[in-house]
Amino acid sequence: MIEFDGVSKWYGAVRVLRNISAKVEKGETIVLCGPSGSGKSTLARTVNRLEPIQEGTIKIDGTDIHAKSMNVNALRTGIGFVFQQFNLFPHLSVVDNVMLPLQRIRQQSRKEALPTALLMLERVGLADKANALPADISGGQSQRVAIARSLILKPQVLILDEPTSALDPEMVGEVLKLLRELSSEGITMMCVTHEMGFAREVSDRIWFLRNGELTFEAKPDLFFSSNTHPDVRGFLSSIH
């Protein structure tokens, strides 16, 4: 469903993505990992065009999303994106954050949008925080709100860029639990993360990037086995 074909990207003279070709099937959960500076976040951000690419194509269901004719806003409404730093809108309450896409993109009235948003908050376990402001909830709660906001337009694809890296250790679990549930519900997911436990249990495949290159790609069994790529072995031992 998502098809990377020869994708390359430069920042000036620095090449940050090198000729990446890979496929994500519908409903799959892909974990992207690798050392810092490997290009994994950049690759994730190319999928909803937060980053332009200079070479290659990225197709979703056969449509070239980096084509000039592609409506970038329409593309993004079909792709949920979750940031490391949550990026909730501080002037809006929790429920208003979640409702914003319904109101301002689907042009629903507050009255129409509210039940959908409350249902979504319930889904992430935060119905009781609907009227709180982002400044008054914890990091884990903020990230769950951000996930709710990214899902409110029922996207087919959910991209997560290190969703637990900014969280205190005791809050990582609640977010991963939610992601596990979402994964089993069949949404197509690409998740940049260092949480190898999550990768092992939840992902269908793991992509390993190094210096902008997709060096290894495997199912978790193989990825964590002794037959894995030597770079992966080095990486895994370095983060443990």
């Binding site: 909803n48 937060l50 806003n73 993004r76 730093q85 990026n87 914003l100 301002r104 337009l153």
Partner: peptide, 23 residues
């Protein structure tokens, strides 16, 4: 990142200005 988050939802530049940045 506020602009980026607003755009990632699918808001246009003007929409992001109107509903996220200016408020």
């Amino acid at each position: 990142a506020q602009m980026e988050a607003a755009r990632s939802i699918g808001l246009t530049y003007l929409g992001a200005m109107r509903w996220v940045i200016l408020p």
